[in-house]
Computed example of a mutant assay.
Amino acid sequence: MINYSINSKQLYRIVAEKFNISKSTAWVYVKKVCDVLTKLSGKYIFWPSGKRPKACIKQFKRRQGFPGVLGVIDGTHIPITPPIKDQTSYCNRHHYHSMILQAVCTADYSFTDVFAGYPGSVHDARVFYNSPLGRKIDTAPLQLFPNVNNHILGDSAYKCTSYVLTPFRDDGHLSRQQKNFNYKLSATRVFIEQCFGLLKGRFRILKHVNVYNTKLISKIIVACCVLHNICISQNDYLVVEVGSDDSHGQLCVDQDCKSGNLKRNYIADKM
């Protein structure tokens, strides 16, 4: 049994001793495995299509009755050893160095989209805007969503649009319908927090990735997400404590687009 409180350099020594290879050889194989898993990521991490969207919507609606949900999105901080030349960029608002993992998951805790690599100081909204998913939702949303009644749910760090619904800003004057909407959205969106908890609980290297090469760090993160989906597909779940300290705070709540507001108000009234 490996003691996960030790750092990753010690882990390589333990792995090397267990398999009777050198630490450098163990490191080479770790990189090779990460390369392979990253290249295979599209086989195991993919957006719902065919009959899957209906199943996803049904699973989410069963939670709190929130309609039309294909997934829930959030970003989480992966603690890292920062590169020597650019440490400041990787220092997040919690005052430790990290890399951001943005992910969308379903109600069965499978990732349907992952994007890793941005430094911890970057806001969730900016990461989303520059991610392949964000660009596709902006330019060709109907390639992802069967119709305009479908969407993903995010927290207040994201901009509210027709396809990314966020909570109403609580200015102390929310209506009963708006409060109910926020409650049901939060209760539905908790799946992504639980998904991150499962991921970090299973792959303890994500507690602190002690690697100086940032490109390799992002590959390690994506590789762990691929392995996570493989485990979920085999009904291999963990029981872990879930934290919620990854929010970047409110940035986009005053930038809601008109169509997003209209859709949000309509759903709030119906709920």
Rank of each mutant, 00 (worst) to 15 (best):
P53Q: 10
V226L: 10
G68R: 04
T188Y: 08
V211T: 11
L70R: 01
F46C: 06
V222R: 06
T76K: 09
I267Y: 05
F203P: 12
A103F: 07
V36H: 07
I14H: 09
C56G: 01
A223T: 04
V226K: 10
S49N: 11
S218T: 12
T88I: 10
C257Q: 09
G42F: 05
R176C: 01
K32L: 11
D86G: 02
D138P: 00
C105Q: 10
M1A: 13
N147Q: 06
M271S: 01
A116T: 01
V242Q: 07
V28A: 03
Y90R: 02
I84W: 05
S110Y: 06
C225A: 14
P82W: 03
Y96F: 15
Q64C: 08
K258N: 10
Y183A: 03
N265Q: 12
L185T: 07
D256K: 09
E17I: 13
I192C: 00
R63E: 15
K54M: 09
D236A: 08
N182Q: 02
K159A: 12
H94D: 03
R62Q: 12
R62T: 09
T76M: 14
I73Y: 03
A116N: 01
S24Q: 13
M99H: 03
N147F: 07
L101H: 07
Q194R: 15
R93N: 04
F46N: 07
D86V: 00
G172H: 01
I192L: 08
S131M: 00
T188M: 07
V211E: 14
E241V: 02
L227Y: 02
L70V: 09
A55N: 12
P53Y: 10
Y96E: 14
L70T: 04
Q59P: 00
A26Y: 08
V122T: 09
I21D: 07
R62N: 13
H208K: 14
C252P: 00
Y96L: 05
Y96N: 10
K18D: 05
Y118M: 08
Y44K: 08
A187G: 12
T76R: 06
I230R: 06
I232E: 08
T139S: 13
Q10E: 14
R93D: 00
L144W: 10
F128P: 14
V36Q: 11
A268Y: 06
N3G: 03
V33P: 05
C252L: 13
G134E: 04
N150L: 01
P119A: 03
V164Q: 08
T81A: 00
V148A: 12
V15F: 10
G201A: 12
K159L: 03
F46L: 10
H228V: 04
T139F: 11
S233I: 03
H95K: 15
N261K: 11
Y44M: 07
H77Y: 15
N20G: 13
P82M: 09
S41T: 05
S131R: 02
E241W: 00
V127N: 05
T76G: 07
V33D: 01
I220H: 02
F19L: 11
T25P: 08
Y90I: 09
K207I: 00
I73G: 13
Q178V: 01
K31Y: 00
D269I: 04
C91W: 01
S233N: 15
R176E: 07
Y29F: 13
L216S: 04
N229L: 01
V122P: 00
L198S: 02
Q10G: 04
N235D: 14
D236E: 14
D245F: 06
T76I: 14
K9C: 06
A103D: 11
Y96T: 11
